[in-house]
Nucleic acid binder design. Sequence first.
DNA 1: TTAGGGTTAG
Length: 699
Amino acid sequence: MDISLPLDQIQSSFKFACSLINPTVFKQKFRLSDEFSLGRRRCRAPIAKFRCAFLDQGLRPRPMPKPREKEENNLKENGYLEERKLKKPNLGVGICSQIEKLVLCKRYNEALELFEILEINDDIDVSFDTYDAAVGACIALRSIRGVKRVFNHMLNSEVELDLYMMNRVLLMHVKCGMMIDARHLFEDMSERNSVSWNTIIGGLVDSGDFFDAFRLFLMMWEDSSNVCSRTFTTMVRAAAGLELISPGQQLHSCALKMGATEDVFVSCALVDMYSKCGSIEDARFVFDMMPEKTTVAWNTVIAGYALHGYSEEALSMYYEMQDSGVKMDHFTYSMIIRVCTRLASLQHARQAHAGLIRNGFGYDVVANTSLVDFYSKWGRIEDARNVFDRMPRKNVVSWNALISGYGNHGRGAEAVDLFERMVDQGMVPNHVTFLAVLSACCHSGLSDRGWEIFESMHRDYKVKPRAMHYTCMVELLGREGLLDEAFALIGSVKPTINMWAALLTACRVHKNFELGKYAAEQLYGMGPEKLSNYVVLLNIYSSSGRLDEAAAVLQTLKRKGLRMLPACTWIEIKKQQYVFFTGDKSHPQTKEIYVNLDNVKLQLSKHGYVPQRNNLLPDVDEREESMLLHHSEKLAISFGLISTPSSTPLQLAQSHRICNDCHNAIKLISTVYKREIAFRDGSRFHYFKEGRCSCGDYW
DNA sequence: TTAGGGTTAG
C-alpha cells in the first residue's frame, strides 16, 4: 500500500487506475445496459420532466383535478361552502397524520393502504411530512407498487419537491430496485448534494453495476466538495464487489489523505475489501490500525479469516473479541458456528450456542440455521432437530439444512417427510432443497419417491432441474440397477463429467462392463488431460480384466508425462501436519499407528461394519484391501475426528468428506504400482489450504 | 435523508 503520495498525484493516479477499467470488458462481464450518460442539463421544473419520463414508461397518471370554481360557485349559492371548507382540512389532516403515525409504528402496509384514500380524494392537501412517511413505508416494504402509487400522487399534485424530498424519492426508487427510474431522476435533478450522489452510487453498487458506480464517482470527484466518508465507504464496497485490489488501494490512499479513514464505516469497508480481494494481511493491518474497534469491525475481520479458510485464526479472533469486551451479535455467532462446523469443534460450538442464547440472539434465523447445520453434520441430528423445532421463524435455508442432515444420516424417509411438511407450511423449495431431498432418497434407496419428486420439481414448483439434480437421479437409478434408464436420462440433457462418473460407478457395482467402458470413455473424452479420467478408464479396464487395454492407458499416461500420485491423507494435530500415503510406514510412530488402526478395525467389525470387498482385484489380499478401503475413516477415528467407531452412514460420509478418499484410485494405484512409486511431492503440500485433511486435485 | 459484517449445496 503506497500511502505516501501527495494528494494531487493520488488523484491523478486514481483516475488513471479507473481509466484502466475497460468499459467494453466490464459491460460484457457485468452485462451492463446501455451506457449511462449523466446529462449536464438543468431543468427549472424537474417535476415536469418526471411527468414526461413517467408517461414514456406507459404509465398514465389519473386525470388532474378539475377547477373547482364552478363547483364552488354552486356551493356558495346553496350555502354549503362554509361546511365544505370545514370538512376538507379535517379529513385530510386526519388521514395524513394517521399515515405518519402508522409509519412511526412500523405499520407500513396499513399506511400505504390508507394512502389509497388520498388517491381517490383529490381535494386533500398532502404535506411533505406525509409524503416522507409514505416514502419511508415504500422503502421498508421494498414495494414497487407503493413507489408507483406515491410517486404518481406527487406528479398529480404538481407539488414542487425540495432537495430533501427529491433525495427521498431517489432513495425510494433505489431501495426498491428501480434503478432505471432512479437514474432518470438523478439525471434530471436541478440540484444535487452529497446525499444525492451517495444514494445513486450506493444503488449502483447494490445492484452490481460497479463500473457505472466508478464512472459516476469520477464525475463526483471533479466536484470533490461532494465527496465525503460515506462516498468512500460505498466506493470501497464497489472495489470489493469487483475484487480488484488496485482501485481499492487507491481509494484507501485518497481516504487517508482526506482523513476519511477515521470514519469507522470506511475502515470496516476497507477491511472487508482487502479480505475479499484476497489480502487478509492488509485487512488485518487496517483492522489493527482502527482506534475504536466496533462489533462490525470484529465481525468483518473474523469473516475475512473464515472466508479464506483460516478457521483457527477466526476462532482465535472471536475469543480476542470476547476478551476485548465488545458486544457480540447474531452475525458474530452465525459466523463462528460455521467456523466450528469446519473445525468439527463441538466444544467451541456449544459455547457459541450458549452465548447466542445468553445474549438474546437465540431466535435469530441465520445463527440457528448454522447450529442446525453444525449438529447435523457432526452426528447429532436430534440436537439439530431440537434447535430447528424451537426456531420461531424458519427460512428455506433452515429447512434445507435439516433435510440435508437427515439425508446424510441415511434417514431418507424423514427427509422426505420434512420436505412435505415444508411445502404444506407454504415454504417454497429451491434447487438446494431438491438436491437435499433427492440425495436423501438416493442414499436411502427411495427410488420411486425420488423419481416422483424429481418429476414434480419443474411441474409443481417451477424449479428447473440442474446438472447436479440429474447427476443425483443417475446415481439413484444406478443404485437400483436401472442402468439403461440412467443412460437414457443422461442422453436427455447435456451430459456432465459427474453424470458419467455416477453411471460409471453404477456400472462397476452392477458389472455392466460394456456400458461402463462407454461411460469411462465419455469421461475420458471430456477432459483428456485430467489425470482422474485416465485413472477411471484404467480402472474400468482392469476391473473388467482387460489388462492389455489397461496397459495401453498406462502407456498413454507415461507418454504424456502424467504422473499418478498415490492416495494420501493428511491430518493436522496441534498445528503439526501428518501425511500418510497408502500403506505408508515411514512415520516414526508407524508401529503405534498400525496397532491403533488394527484396534479400530476390530472395533468396527464388532459394530457390524463389513468392509465392501472388491472382487475385481484378485491380487490384493483381504487384509490389505480392507485396510486400503477404509483408510480414511480409520485414520479419522484414530485421530479423534470421529468420536466412536461405528458404521453410521453419516460418520463414514464425514470421514470421506474430510479425507477426500477415493477408494478405487487407491486400490488401483497401489495394485498397479505397489509401494515403489509412492513419493512425497513437496509441491503438493500447498493444498493445506485450510489446514485440515485434504487431498490433491490430481485424483 | 444515504453506509459496514452472517446460514444450506456445489
